[in-house]
Design a protein around this nucleic acid. Sequence first.
DNA 1: GCCTTTGCGTACCAGGTGGTATCGAATGTG
DNA 2: CACATTCGATACCACCTGGTACGCAAAGGC
Lengths: 200, 200
Amino acid sequence: MSDEKPTRARGRPRTLDPDHVLKVAIDAYWRGDPADVSVNAICRLAGVSKPSLYREFGSEDGLTRAALERYAREVLTDVFTIVQSGRGLRPTLDALIDFAAGDARMETGCLFYKMRNGKHRLGPETRQLVDDLDAGARAAYATFFEACRSAGEWSEPPPVEAAARYLSEQVALAITQRASSEDPAQIRASLALALSVFER
Amino acid sequence: MSDEKPTRARGRPRTLDPDHVLKVAIDAYWRGDPADVSVNAICRLAGVSKPSLYREFGSEDGLTRAALERYAREVLTDVFTIVQSGRGLRPTLDALIDFAAGDARMETGCLFYKMRNGKHRLGPETRQLVDDLDAGARAAYATFFEACRSAGEWSEPPPVEAAARYLSEQVALAITQRASSEDPAQIRASLALALSVFER
DNA sequence: GCCTTTGCGTACCAGGTGGTATCGAATGTG
DNA sequence: CACATTCGATACCACCTGGTACGCAAAGGC
């Protein structure tokens, strides 16, 4: 493609900073409930006019999708890294517990889970991305259990898909609870209890 | 009190049927997401004018509170009955699993949990009722575990409060998942796995 | 017959939503 | 210089929200 350059600067130079807008949007969506944050609010917070935002992202759906995309790239990556680290069963589960119940970034919950909880309110693009991320996470968990089983670390009845679903939902539950300012210690204890089913 | 009578019929006789309105409201809230059902929609569905509804319930908060109150009286009661049935540990947990993963009424989720999930969107009265019901449920679960411990059926480490929280949240998770049309068999399997921590 | 009392419903309110038409500002190009 | 081109911002759109003012209908009391 020839338009990979920073685009011919012919007309009025742009003052809009899409990166900044996206940061503000992610922060606002993440801190509260995505469904309660309007584009007007984002514009106000980012100091940007509404038409500028719409020129950049096309629609509210485009904005939320871009926000979730970036969030996945910058934050969710860490979870995949943990799961794919190749450590054993117990160390990996412990690392997941640490992340879900301890990581400071999850203090107000997870933007992904917040969007997933209100999936029916999202636009089609964002909803699709949510579904893709969800499927990706479950797949990662499944290959993790598969590896553990191959390594002989785990030979209990639940099939890997069921275990992956279970692990995924327990982590989601724990992180979601952190958004309602519950006691992190109790959240950690509950998650540890839930994941103790993989013990013996 | 002397005004317990059907109220002096002096003026125009009322045609509004609060019972019917409440039924319609509960059904609409329950089927979808309470936050997505407006008073306008309730009025349309119930065939009632908005001022009539406001004369009866005062505000949207009053309506949602009345709906949740009745829902608790008619549906949630069954859960309390199960927990307080005095059966043993395993039978009670199995009955809870049956209810959460099998009961036809939970096919579209639980109105209480739907409201709890979007608690910040509720009015003060309804939110208070949600908190009260939540506390009541946890208390019931706690006394249940206490009884099991006294009966010598259960002597594992988790303190009763932690166990109560855990059980409460696992049941909530299972019922909430049913609202997203997931496979009931998998929901049941996940919940059974989660509650297997109380096994030995 | 009137008058009071009560309830119902139309038609409205202010405020917020996602989204856009339009005009002016700021640049490079001829 | 004038022009095309690109961007930004005001000011608007239709629609929906929770909530209400007000006039009319339907009854009992006198």
